Amino acid sequence: MLTSIQLSAMLTLQDGMNTKVNPAWLGAGYAYLRAAMIESVEGIEHHGWKWWKAQHKDLAQLQMELVDIWHFALSDILINYAGNIQQSADTIAKELASGRKHVTFDGKNYDFTQQDILDNLELMAGLCAAKRFDVPLFIQIVEQAEMDSDELYRQYVGKNVLNFFRQDHGYKEGSYIKIWQGQEDNEHLVEVLDKLDIGLADYSDQVYLGLKERYPN
């Protein structure tokens, strides 16, 4: 289960990235749950669902879609609490601790622990289309995609910090160097993450520092 430190860290990072894009993002009316709905459908595509043709499940891409969905979900939750990180974290923690295994949608009760990942991704897409996000359902899908809470946190922080790092080093202006020493920045990120303890209180800062130490001057 995600810890209070992890929740606060992710919400702080999300608020920071959204503010970087638009300082007035809380009132901008961005359709974050629409974005989460689209990512849910893309997750279905990466898993494969077509019975009339051979398909290969791309687990890494599916996990990446889930990390993206979490970015949008955190944004929506922050909006619901006017940007209050503590209230947002408390709400998520309460949902996670509830042990709830059901969700009611369109008058029907779904036990998402008894559904496969495709049915759950479809259910999540439907909920997002109805402007709802269900945290326990999402975590069930994360587990079905062979991730645990720590891995969700690790990948989320990694992607968020890399986005910050790119912006700080000229990504928008076109001066950012994406390949260093024969490796793309994503590959450097993986190596940095592998060397760090996710239990660090300043985990995200250490990820940024690790990238900065590798980046060419």
Rank of each mutant, 00 (worst) to 15 (best):
S98N: 02
H102A: 03
G158K: 01
S4V: 05
D111C: 07
L189C: 15
A89L: 09
K178M: 11
K178V: 14
E213K: 10
A129V: 02
R34V: 06
L152A: 00
Q63K: 11
V157R: 04
G199F: 04
R100S: 06
E184I: 15
G170L: 02
Y208C: 06
F105M: 02
I198Q: 05
D148V: 00
W70C: 06
F164W: 01
V142N: 01
M10S: 11
W25G: 15
E213W: 07
V192S: 10
D197Y: 03
H188P: 13
P136V: 03
I44K: 14
E95L: 03
Y81I: 04
A201M: 06
M64I: 12
W180R: 14
L211G: 13
L26S: 14
Q155D: 08
K159A: 10
L33R: 07
V161R: 01
D185N: 08
A130G: 09
A24F: 13
H169G: 05
R34S: 13
V41T: 10
P136D: 11
I77G: 10
L200A: 11
A31N: 14
T104L: 01
D148W: 01
C128T: 13
Q206T: 11
Q114P: 09
V135S: 00
V207M: 04
L137T: 09
H47R: 12
D205N: 10
P23I: 11
I5E: 13
A97G: 04
T104I: 00
Q6R: 02
E151R: 03
I141K: 04
A129K: 06
K57A: 00
L74E: 00
T91C: 15
E45H: 13
L127R: 03
L121N: 13
W51C: 12
W49V: 06
H71F: 08
I79G: 09
F72D: 00
A73D: 00
M1K: 00
E39M: 06
Q87W: 07
L96V: 01
H71Q: 02
N160T: 09
Q63D: 10
G126F: 09
E143P: 01
A9V: 15
I92Y: 10
G16E: 05
Y176I: 06
S40T: 09
Q114C: 12
G43D: 14
T19W: 03
Y176C: 05
T12I: 09
T113Y: 11
G170Q: 09
E122H: 09
L189V: 12
E45V: 11
D119C: 15
H47M: 13
K131S: 13
A130E: 10
S88P: 15
G170P: 11
R214V: 04
N163H: 05
L33H: 07
S149A: 12
Q86T: 12
M147R: 00
V207L: 07
E65Y: 02
Q144V: 01
A31Y: 12
M10Y: 10
I69L: 08
W25K: 08
